[in-house]
Design a protein around this nucleic acid. Structure first.
Length: 416
RNA sequence: GCGGGUAUAGCUCAGUUGGUUAGAGCAUCUGGUUGUGGUCCAGAGGGUCGUGGGUUCGAGUCCCAUUACUCGCCCCA
């Protein structure tokens, strides 16, 4: 541990054994469920022009102002390691000429990078799965996207551990109206607000609703409520989303202070949260972003999507299913090595999961077979080679018998 | 960026008011068992006590700094 450069960079981790199995489990469940909903996969580059993120996320967000891994290429271009997935998908939507192929359903999965202080459930390189539905302006789009999220959490057996919170940010008019009264109210209490909230009052007043500062919370309790300022169209829209979810049996609760900071968000905002991960309770979050594509320079296109943290989901998973037990092939002496190797290959070609101890006496190899959790050992010695057979030993019971080489596949059928 | 906690063997951790060869369990290796593992028994290897400085006759232990990890704030997935 003396060479600091031999440690993984702060906030990054090597994933192996059980950890990566959990990740793969999350990812493969996601891929199979997403396919049932008609989503196809997209893999956008891990870095993009800095502009792509700066423009889409908004230059008042923490992500853009202090958490991006931004660097200059040898060609002098400013590029950024992606801090989230939606911006890249939106960029691809425009630059790949997909704007005429709506409705478009895309899902993705991959590493994201944010320069934050690491803690439980928060790393500098982390992984997200996400889904985006482009070109569906109606509430049935919201319902389907949320149902997809709920479905995946269900497949992962997490329904008891997470709850869905829902809010509406309304359309642009509603938001402008609410924003105005909120600013007026908060300005009246300006002196009592925390420093950050005073700052947000200028840049992003909705975020004050989110504050965890005790004094701020006091003020927020009596603040004008967003739902009261939704116009009729926005109310109808939100009502349809709620009815749609209820019809599908997706449970949710309303949370009027659930907000998204960015201007292009509208209508539905939602989060699946858990109590089990401490401060990082948000496991999956998303919303409708009808303004985004236009803001990036594409044709006005409705959009809604979400992203989930794979690490956070993986932490919530229970025990992983046990791995299939291999078959161990054990040559008694060096004389049998070649026969053993051929047998191993033959069984692998037939679809069996086979391992072999590479060196050592028989005792050692038996020990290794045991450690691999092998179900059976195939022992090959001089006698066996002579009669073209192997000794098949069941490692749990210790029973063993002689099996002709030719009959092996059928005798091992149970262990495939 | 701010605050708290922690750092001793590959892993999990003991280590007394500062006291001389720094321990345990697990893991690893060897032997008991040269064609039979998981149990058992005997033994072995493995540590610049995170790093640097200071106090002291003497520091794993006290002080300072630093780094890493971790939890919280913030932010978010």
């Amino acid at each position: 541990m003396t060479l600091s450069s031999l440690q993984p960079v702060r906030g990054t981790h090597d994933l192996m054994f059980d950890d990566i199995r959990r990740h793969r489990h999350v990812q493969s469940k996601f891929a199979s469920v997403a396919a049932r909903y008609g989503y196809s996969e997209i893999a956008t580059p891990i870095f993009e022009s800095t502009e792509v993120f700066a423009r889409t996320l908004g230059d008042t967000t923490d992500i853009v102002t202090k958490e991006m891994y931004t660097f200059e290429t040898k060609g002098g271009e400013s590029v950024t390691l992606r801090p989230e997935g939606t911006a890249g998908v939106a960029r691809a939507f425009i630059s790949e000429g997909l704007t005429q192929q709506t409705p478009l359903k895309l899902f993705y999965n991959g590493p994201m990078f944010r320069h934050e202080r690491p803690q439980k459930g928060r790393q500098r390189q982390f992984h997200q799965i996400g889904a985006e539905l482009l070109g569906v302006p109606g509430p049935q789009g919201d319902v389907e996207v949320i149902a997809l999220a709920d479905h995946i959490l269900r497949e992962l057996n997490l329904t008891g551990k997470v709850t869905l919170e829902l809010n509406s940010l309304g359309d642009a008019d509603s938001r402008a109206a609410y924003r105005a009264v909120l600013i007026e109210y908060l300005t009246g209490h300006r002196e009592k607000l925390s420093a950050e909230s005073r700052d947000r009052l200028e840049k992003n007043p909705l975020r004050v609703l989110d504050s965890k500062d005790a004094a701020d919370k006091e003020i927020v309790i009596s603040a004008p409520r967003f739902p009261d300022y939704l116009n009729q169209a926005s109310r109808d829209f939100f009502k349809s989303v709620q009815d749609g979810l209820s019809d599908l049996g997706v449970a949710f609760s309303l949370n009027a202070s659930l907000v998204r900071g960015l201007d292009y968000y509208s209508h539905t905002a939602f989060e699946f949260t858990t109590e089990a991960l401490g401060a990082q309770g948000t496991v999956l979050a998303g919303g409708r972003y009808d303004g985004l594509i236009a803001q990036m320079g594409g044709p006005p296109t409705a959009g809604i999507g979400w992203a989930a943290g794979v690490e956070r989901l993986a932490m919530l998973l229970g025990e992983m299913p046990v791995l299939p037990r291999p078959i161990a092939v054990i040559p008694v002496g060096v004389g049998e090595d070649a026969v053993a190797q051929k047998l191993v290959h033959r069984l692998r070609m037939s679809g069996f999961n086979v391992d072999i101890g590479y060196s050592g006496n028989m005792g050692k190899r038996m020990k290794r077979a045991n450690k691999l959790n092998a179900a059976v050992a195939l022992i090959i010695g001089e006698d066996e080679v002579k009669q073209s057979s192997v000794t098949l030993r069941h490692l749990d019971s210790g029973e063993q018998s002689t099996v002709a080489m030719a009959d092996l596949e059928s005798r091992l059928e149970l262990y495939r």
